Amino acid sequence: MIIIGIDPHKSAHTAVAVDAAGHKVGQRRFVVNSGTFGRLLHWCAQWPGRRFAVEGASGLGRSLAQQLAAAGEDVVDVPSTLSARARLLATGGDRKTDPADALHVAQVALFRTDLRKVSAEDQSTILRLLTERHDDLTGERTRIVNRLHAVPAASSCGSGMRCPRDSATRSASVRASASREASQRYSVADRARAPGARTSRACSSSSSPMPSWTASMLSASVDR
């Protein structure tokens, strides 16, 4: 049996075919577009007895793995941790290239019998994926709209102050501020008009003479 290891990426997929001994018998790179799947099957038609090993069939390679499974191909999922371990054992380092990764994926699938077999997803799974994607797009749109609303508010109110959002809130804020200032002014004026406050200020000031009405009040109290 021929094992075809695939290293999937967003822009291109690299496929390497190995025989039963693990020797490479073919290699090709496929640019990702609408005709990628057809070209891959046409290239693999030279090996009737074949099995596909896709790295990350539940992640980045999910679309390709599902296309292969829906076409009736034998597909297994190779976790990236296993392919990385095989690369480390083969090269003695962590340097990686797409052809080398695809080769190690195929070799892992050749010698491991406990890999997960990829099956075609039904309509419920597809609807769930579409719903999750819709929720992600809705959340992203809400985040962008909130940011766009925050930019004019920050530019009009300044970066160091908080600006009320509507005219009613701004009016209430202005009225509250004016009321606080008026109460402070009235409190100061009441203290200034109090006779005790005037007497204490007059007595504590040695440079200014005592007013006549204050002296008369003090003398009258002493007589009583």
Score class of each variant (00 low, 15 high):
Q27K: 12
S119Y: 09
T169H: 03
G5T: 05
D74T: 03
D77S: 04
M210R: 06
S63Y: 12
G35Q: 11
E55A: 01
A215Y: 10
L82N: 02
G5Y: 05
L89F: 05
A53D: 08
Q46A: 15
F37V: 09
A189Q: 10
V75Y: 07
A53W: 08
H9K: 10
S11R: 13
S208E: 14
C163L: 10
V32N: 02
C157G: 15
S177T: 07
D7Q: 00
G72R: 10
G92H: 04
P211E: 05
S159A: 15
M1E: 11
S173M: 12
R116M: 10
V54T: 03
I6R: 01
A197T: 10
A84H: 08
Y186L: 13
M161P: 03
R165F: 07
E55N: 00
A21E: 08
R116P: 14
V32W: 08
S212E: 12
S216H: 04
L130N: 12
C163G: 13
G59H: 03
T138N: 10
L137S: 11
N33H: 11
S11N: 11
S207L: 13
F111R: 15
T142W: 02
D190G: 14
S155Y: 14
L41R: 13
M210V: 03
S206R: 15
E121P: 08
G158R: 05
V16Q: 09
G35I: 15
S216C: 13
A194S: 14
L115Y: 03
S206H: 02
G5Q: 04
A71K: 09
D135T: 12
D19V: 04
R62T: 13
R112S: 05
L103G: 06
D122P: 08
D101W: 05
V118S: 01
R116Y: 08
R165C: 12
L68V: 04
L40G: 04
T131D: 14
V76D: 03
A84P: 07
L129W: 10
R28K: 13
R143F: 07
I2C: 07
R95W: 06
A109V: 01
S11K: 14
A153R: 09
H42Y: 15
V76G: 00
G49L: 03
F52W: 01
A176C: 09
V105S: 06
G56P: 00
S221L: 14
A17G: 00
G35N: 13
R147E: 13
E140R: 14
G160V: 07
L130K: 14
G158H: 02
H42T: 07
A189W: 09
P8S: 06
R180S: 11
R185E: 08
